[in-house]
């Protein structure tokens, strides 16, 4: 068996459509889409509002606060760059949309559904990722 080459975690790359989200992240601001007509917030990026099907939207700064909707502790090594175990967590933002993320600053054993959390930024060279920590 040869050693596999060093593999890094899949880091997202901004595309034109989602650039305001990633630019906001670089500045430490959680910026998400909001329907210009019915005012519903939405995640992730999509052209149409799923509530009213409007194609008019704006990027607005969200509070960065939310609660743990649910989570799991991954033990299966699906991807060589992920050290197991690690948590996979869905945070429900105060504005309503849910985001798939990881909790930081808390041991996996202490994570609870309903726990209040706040965004925390994981910085990489050309991209910053929204993670969450207990509020």
């Amino acid at each position: 068996m040869t050693q596999p080459a060093q593999v890094t975690k899949p880091l997202p790359e901004a595309d034109d459509a989602s650039k305001p989200f990633w630019d906001g992240a670089m500045e430490g601001r959680l910026v998400i889409l909001r329907c210009a007509d019915c005012k519903a917030w939405r995640m992730p990026w999509r052209h149409h509002c799923d509530q009213c099907l409007s194609d008019r939207s704006t990027w607005e700064q969200a509070s960065g606060r939310g609660v743990v909707r649910t989570f799991g502790i991954m033990h299966q090594k699906y991807h060589p760059a992920f050290e197991v175990p690690y948590n996979v967590t869905i945070v429900e933002l105060a504005e309503g949309p849910r985001i798939t993320t990881n909790l930081v600053g808390v041991s996996n054993a202490d994570i609870r559904v309903g726990m209040p959390v706040v965004v925390d930024w994981e910085r990489h060279s050309d991209i910053t990722l929204p993670k969450f920590r207990p509020a």
């Binding site: 880091l11 997202p12 790359e13 901004a14 990026w45 649910t70 989570f71 990881n102």
Partner: peptide, 29 residues
């Protein structure tokens, strides 16, 4: 992809892989 494009990449960046993850999260809830 090593660099998944756009916000859909948040799933892979969080290590959300496969059907097992979705059902584990549902069961936990």
């Amino acid at each position: 992809a090593p660099r998944p494009r756009g916000m859909a990449g948040l799933y892979a960046a969080a290590g959300y892989f496969g059907a097992n993850t979705g059902y584990a999260l549902a069961a936990q809830r």
